[in-house]
C-alpha cells in the first residue's frame, strides 16, 4: 500500500513539474505563438520594426479595389478599433469577400500601407444553410435601419 502511494506521488510530481515547465515556456513564447497581429496592436507599435508579420482583421465591405488587367488588389482591414490599408498581388482564397476575416502576411511600407505577399481567409465557427444566413441578414438589417 505504501509503495503504491509513493509511486502515485512520483507520477503526480513529474506531471506537475512538466506542467509548470510547459506553462512557463508558453508564457515566454506568447508573442511568437500569436499567429497574427490585429490592426490596433500594429498601430500601438507592438510589432517589431521592419520585420515580416501577419496582420489579421475583417475586410471592410466596399473597400476592395481591383486594378483592371492585373491581379493587384487593395482593401482595408479593421478590428473595429483601428484600420489599415493592405495591398496584395496574387490569387485570393475562395472565402475572400466583403466582411470576411483575413490574415495577410507581409511588411509595412514607409507610407503605412501593409504590403502582403500572402492572404489567407480565416473562417469563423458558424455553419448554416443559405436561407438561415439570409434570414439573419434581414433581421440584422432591420435592427440597423
Amino acid at each position: 500500500m505504501k509503495k503504491r502511494y509513493q509511486r502515485g506521488i512520483q507520477v503526480a510530481l513529474v506531471l506537475a513539474g512538466v506542467g509548470i515547465a510547459v506553462t512557463l515556456m508558453l508564457r515566454a513564447f506568447d508573442e511568437n505563438i500569436l499567429y497574427f497581429y490585429m490592426p490596433q496592436q500594429v498601430v500601438a507599435g507592438d510589432v517589431p520594426d521592419g520585420k515580416r508579420f501577419r496582420l489579421g482583421g475583417l475586410v471592410i465591405p466596399g473597400s476592395i479595389e481591383r486594378a483592371p488587367g492585373s491581379l493587384k488588389v487593395s482593401f482595408l482591414v479593421t478590428d473595429n478599433q483601428k484600420t489599415l490599408s493592405v495591398e496584395y498581388e496574387g490569387v485570393l482564397p475562395d472565402l475572400f469577400r466583403d466582411g470576411q476575416g483575413v490574415i495577410a502576411h507581409g511588411t509595412m511600407d514607409d507610407n503605412g500601407i501593409f504590403v502582403a505577399d500572402e492572404v489567407l481567409a480565416k473562417h469563423d465557427e458558424n455553419y448554416m444553410p443559405p436561407e438561415v444566413a439570409e434570414a439573419l441578414k434581414q433581421v440584422h438589417g432591420d435592427e440597423e435601419s
Binding site: D30, I33, L34, Y35, F36, Y37, M38, G56, I103, L120, K122, H123, D124, E125, N126, Y127, M128, P129, V132
Partner: peptide, 22 residues
C-alpha cells in the same frame, strides 16, 4: 492565442454556431 483555426462550434456558450439540421 490568435490562430488561423476557428474556435469551437459545438461546445460553445450562447447561441448555437451550427443549425440543427447540420
Amino acid at each position: 492565442w490568435n490562430s488561423l483555426h476557428q474556435g469551437a462550434t459545438i461546445i460553445k456558450l450562447g447561441k448555437p454556431a451550427i443549425t440543427g439540421d447540420m
